[in-house]
């Protein structure tokens, strides 16, 4: 593969994971609350999407995936606000419970391919690939351009980029409405929100639902793109999302919510490019998780290092003056 097709492949993956990064951004940066539901809701989105796609409704499948994510978020949110369970534990509980649900959705197996059994003209049973968003869009592009050898990743990139752009724009607008601003304020100073006669619990629950709906949507997109759902795909997904958000922040800072949304998307793209580069130098695929964890640790340590350096410099200057 040449560099360009590698880049297209990385960008297409980055776009598919971008809603997940947005979900993590909403949970960690806007609501300021660590939410581990994410690992579970990603897979839930995948599983539900797989089942509905196989049933022949690839578009409805994406919405169903999203809805199941929102539902997972609702459970976590209720545990946090009504049962007063620690936020991290609430997320772990939902994630753990979801494993069983996901297993059941997949019909008691750990993975499911997007295909169904059909009978061909000779009367023999064959496996037919289910229609997906990506399959349909590629067929459309091939017809449009007349290029039968069209790079599959390119078509994935184009349609996903359009979807992500719409999602990001809607989010940017939403966070400037009264409801959206109340969610932001709840993450910033919950007491102030209550004092302003706004139901902070409701804002928090709604924020967690939105976050997990986006994460599950990402899972659903990935499911249709790679044509299978896998029960164990969510492990460490949170760290991947966090890495994307932090990488984005390096480029855009923390200034406004709109920039934050853009930076989460760009962070997801850059993260996939870094991974692609790492594969290129023969990094084994199982090293991904370690690499992600290291990126997050380094990025989170940067502010501390920066402070230590400035303090030391200040000390040295004081000494030379004395």
């Amino acid at each position: 593969m040449n560099i360009l097709s590698l880049l297209i492949s990385a960008l297409s993956q980055g776009m598919i994971y971008a809603p997940m990064a947005l979900g993590v951004y909403i949970a960690f940066r806007i609501l300021n609350t660590p939410d581990l539901t994410i690992d579970g809701s990603f897979v839930a989105g995948m599983c539900v999407c797989a089942v509905v796609t196989i049933a022949g409704h690839p578009y409805l499948a994406l919405l169903c995936g999203m809805a199941v994510g929102a539902l997972a978020g609702l459970l976590t949110g209720l545990m946090q606000t009504q049962l007063r369970i620690n936020p991290i534990l609430s997320g772990i509980l939902t994630m753990t419970g979801l494993y069983t649900i996901n297993f059941m959705v997949l019909g008691g197996q750990s993975n499911l391919y997007l295909q169904r059994t059909a009978v061909n003209s000779a009367g023999a049973e064959t496996q037919v690939a289910s229609d997906t968003l990506y399959k349909t869009f590629r067929a459309f592009l091939v017809e449009l351009t007349g290029n039968k050898r069209l790079d599959n990743n390119l078509s994935v990139l184009i349609i996903t980029a359009v979807i992500v752009a719409v999602v990001a724009a809607v989010l940017a607008v939403f966070f400037h409405t009264r409801t959206g601003m109340a969610i932001r304020a709840t993450g910033d100073n919950e007491e102030m929100v209550r004092s302003s006669s706004i139901n902070a619990d409701r804002s928090r629950i709604f924020g967690i639902m939105l976050s997990n709906a986006l994460v599950a949507f990402s899972g659903a997109l990935l499911c249709e793109q790679q044509r299978y759902a896998d029960l164990n795909f969510g492990n460490g997904m949170l760290v991947v999302g966090l890495a994307s958000v932090i990488i984005g922040q390096v480029f855009f800072g923390k200034r406004s919510v709109t920039l934050g949304i853009i930076s989460a998307v760009v962070g997801s793209l850059i993260y996939r490019i870094i991974l692609q580069a790492a594969y290129k130098i023969d990094m084994p695929s199982y090293a991904v998780k370690l690499l992600s964890a290291v990126i997050v640790v380094i990025a989170l340590t940067l502010p501390l290092l920066k402070r230590l350096v400035t303090e030391r410099r200040a000390n040295r200057e004081e000494e030379t003056e004395a």
Partner: peptide
């Protein structure tokens, strides 16, 4: 305790005013 540090002065006031403000799509 009374203000949200990462939001602008305008947004803080808009949030506090929400309970009595006329309905509007954007908070600010």
């Amino acid at each position: 305790r009374g203000t949200a540090p990462n939001m602008t002065i305008e947004e803080n006031l808009a949030l506090a005013y929400t309970r009595k403000a006329r309905k509007s799509f954007f908070a600010v």
